[in-house]
Design a protein around this nucleic acid. Sequence first.
DNA 1: ATCTCCGGATGAAACATTTCAATGTGACTG
DNA 2: CAGTCACATTGAAATGTTTCATCCGGAGAT
Lengths: 343, 343
Amino acid sequence: MGIKDVAREAGVSVGTVSNVINRPDTVARATRERVQEVVRHLGYVRSESARQLRAGASRIVGLLVLDMGNPFFVDVARGAERAARAAGLGVMVCNSASSPDEEAEYLSMFVEQRVRGVLVTPADPTGRDLDLLRRHGIPYVVVDAIVDDTEDGGGSCSVSVDDVAGGEMAVAHLLAQGHRSIAFVSGVGHGRPQIRDRWKGACRAVALAGLAPETVREILPDVAASIGADAVARLLDLPDRPTAVFCANDMLALGVLQALFAAGIKVPEEIALVGYDDIQFAAAAAVPLTSVRQPAAEMGRIAAEMLVRESAADHDVEGHAHRHVVLQPELVARASSSLRVAP
Amino acid sequence: MGIKDVAREAGVSVGTVSNVINRPDTVARATRERVQEVVRHLGYVRSESARQLRAGASRIVGLLVLDMGNPFFVDVARGAERAARAAGLGVMVCNSASSPDEEAEYLSMFVEQRVRGVLVTPADPTGRDLDLLRRHGIPYVVVDAIVDDTEDGGGSCSVSVDDVAGGEMAVAHLLAQGHRSIAFVSGVGHGRPQIRDRWKGACRAVALAGLAPETVREILPDVAASIGADAVARLLDLPDRPTAVFCANDMLALGVLQALFAAGIKVPEEIALVGYDDIQFAAAAAVPLTSVRQPAAEMGRIAAEMLVRESAADHDVEGHAHRHVVLQPELVARASSSLRVAP
DNA sequence: ATCTCCGGATGAAACATTTCAATGTGACTG
DNA sequence: CAGTCACATTGAAATGTTTCATCCGGAGAT
């Protein structure tokens, strides 16, 4: 059951069958219809493996995210998937679980598969893992991060969101509500640029308001334990107890919200809460969560489109200039940070 | 940069290089080490396409789910992925979005890829789409459903959860709380067997309690509109307003919860609420949600393991007997259905 | 000294496509 | 009528592996 069987059955050469499938307009109508009939009759489906062996690259792109359990990345995947399919490409979604080892493993699997390209949110902040792709000439687009890799001649496109602006608008919002002691909670991967930028934005908001830097303090919960509970425990231990908490993402914020509830602390009356990502569940939380919305699906879409363009252009060697698209986040105010009564 | 280059550089034949990679113990130590060194030096990575062209099947399994946005399926995917990787297989997760058309499209893509097998939650309740796989001899396991396909000689393994039992325990729980008028809300895909079974279970609980069948009524919100809001509108229109709502899944329940909140109706005081799936966010909802937990990750794991076994056994033609594993759900009681004060 | 065996290495076939130069066939032009 | 051109079709090469029958050289047995 190969192209040869179809050819024999239809009384034509394999080349003609191939043409019927890939360039139907170049073959005479009578022949075309006869071949198509045989294809249908035999239930022939071409073999991608043979096809891509010849072509040198497959028709799928790899997508490597940090956490499939986080709806933010699910949205990114959805956007990417839709755009890729519009270009006739399939998407293989993989989950590095923020581990550089798993990341390396998946990337080398992508190389084995000779994928058309890769969309990746790097787990390894050095971006060293990506060298593998570059060495094999596989184009990639960095999603939700900017990797500074211009020095080694490579470089890449990227799509990200302005996390400094996001952090700033979250804290500016809290300051506007009258809060003067704010905690910034960063959980797993607190060292990642995205999180660092949100922290920077938080500090900038404080500085712009002309307040003391200590107005916002960082809390680093133990990632081994239940993160939300540990964060709240540390929070309550703080000398000058904060009246507001800004969490590095919504998953974290939901955990903190639960822990605050368990501790009998009222949100937003006693402590205001702001998250990040505006995942679908933020609005349905125990107290609807104020959050900084990131255009996740759009990020996925743009990344996939850039990849398609780059992979199409990669034949004229330096015909492709890497671009860095930076999108803007948006504050969505809900009950968890509502205007509190002045003390 | 193929196996040939490695062979030339190391001064051996391609067969030997292949042996070094796939059966290192059959080649003399000196040769082996020399070849390995060259591989490292040249950065050689074997081509999966060529490999699978020869082998006839790839090393990836397809996973087709109904809704990537639903954390339930994300958990299934996680379980499947882990088990597949333990067997050296990759997983390609795709989202049929409950559309038979998309399902058919993805399945034929799987056939093109000559995947090793497929894990699928069918969007087409007739299971007709699966014929394609059977025709091409691709093993598949049905996840979260049982397809009755024994008549056409094919058949398949399946892993599912006893939805009748789940529906029954949800409603029995509400009856035990004293509720005597219950609404069952089923949203998108209300016609699917899973949902029908939950409804059957609900009816059975009522019958077992010796109550009138009208004790539980079904509500079918308009899927085009905002489902939660529409469900609540219909609910309030009901002649004898129910005091409890059982939703076919948690996504739906969260929507209903939001709509109830918007309508100023207190949960659980005025209306009790029970969901299904016990997704991670159920516990963090506005009112922590009572739900029926399904062992999602385990289902994925078992399904993948069955597939691996079947695909290994498919050489001895009828050496494989299809099995149907049915797991048991579990009720997780939370605030949304807490004991209400007698009227 | 000859035979047998065995660990190691080899070379070619097979896998299912795509692509491309070459070929054949009429039809139209000069 | 010869020449040219466009259109359809063909046949074979090329893609990078794996597998398997074969071969080689040396060690042990007779």
